[in-house]
Amino acid sequence: MTETLLDIRGISKSFGALKASDDVALDLKQGEIHALIGPNGAGKSTLIAQIAGSLRPDSGEVWLEGRNVTHKDTVARAKAGLGRTFQISSLAMEDTVLQNAVLGALGARHRVPGFWRPVMRDGDLRASAMQALEKVGLEEFAHFRTADLSHGQRRQLEVAVALTLKPHVFLMDEPMAGLGADGSAILVEFLRNLKSSAPILLVEHDMDAVFQLADRISVLVYGRIIATGAPDEIRANAQVREAYLGEEDAE
């Protein structure tokens, strides 16, 4: 059987009376893209925060590569191999594109960064950063100020920074958001190739992309996972149609 790299074991999280996560179980296996979909307010962001480590679940556990990381913070989980992209681009906007990528490569070294040697002259870091930028097609923009990039390019840079970490698991929060049809198509191709190096837990609103890409889909509604299965199974699932896809059709 394929190895399970990320294992979410029955986590629950309440805010007052609101059950944002209700006994959620989810896993991610080597080589797959597992998409998480759900209507607005279903608790996707809360779930991601608990997987990334910025929010502690009330109960349940998060396992990463066979290790219980429930009580580890974001920094420790990043070091343990979780590569995360943010829904809203989260970059050092005043810095150049290359500097953002070098920051990732620096983090991947797992030690306190040096105080003395000029970091942008570090050949290894530069090479690793440029390699990531080339993979997402941003190499020509390396010396642009990040704030001067287009929205789509910032999304690409998000992915590039995650790549520099050489993670064992990708956690991607709506990477297609605001990309447009062309941009989405390119990223779909890219993620399809990327999954062989590390599996991807993909939270995405773009249904076309999800059904093209995902090996498995989980549907989150009101904090509960109501179904998990192959795209065809999900498409055929009556409960899902009612709770989620039906709404989409109605829009």
């Binding site: 920094v75 420790a76 990043a78 070091k79 989260s90 990732g104 520099t164």
Partner: peptide, 8 residues
């Protein structure tokens, strides 16, 4: 958040 996410 960016710096935390790269493990620093």
């Amino acid at each position: 958040a960016r710096v935390r996410a790269v493990g620093i």
